[in-house]
């Protein structure tokens, strides 16, 4: 089915930034909490540290997440939270996804 055919049948475009396994997992996880540490996200998504850093960088660049760095027990600690823009994009993605699953 072509893109124009999908649109005419009520399908909506999915945000390409979120339509990737790891980025979607990160944003979904953050949508349910106020903030989470890098190690927590890594553990729950099963991603490697390098890959997670790259994907978080993309989400941060798009303004979907906020990344803050601090120290905890003398060790660097990275905390991530979803921004209003990220939450709204996630909500829109979930809404658009529904059109594919219900039509």
């Amino acid at each position: 089915m072509s893109n124009s055919e999908k649109k005419s049948q009520g399908f909506r475009e999915l945000d390409p930034l979120l339509h990737s396994a790891l980025r979607l997992a990160v944003v979904s996880l953050l949508a349910g909490v106020r903030s989470a540490e890098f190690s927590f996200i890594k553990e729950k998504t099963g991603a490697t540290a390098g890959n997670l850093s790259v994907q978080l960088g993309k989400l941060e660049k798009a303004g979907y997440v906020e990344v803050s760095k601090s120290f905890k027990n003398n060790y660097p600690c990275t905390t991530v939270s979803l921004t209003d823009k990220g939450l709204s994009a996630f909500g829109q993605y979930a809404e658009n996804l529904k059109t594919y699953l219900t039509v």
Partner: peptide
């Protein structure tokens, strides 16, 4: 790359985890 069904499954799983 993920399918729409996989996307839905990821959202469900991660929200449950949170």
């Amino acid at each position: 790359n993920i399918s729409r069904e996989e996307g839905y499954e990821i959202i469900q799983r991660m929200l449950r985890t949170a």
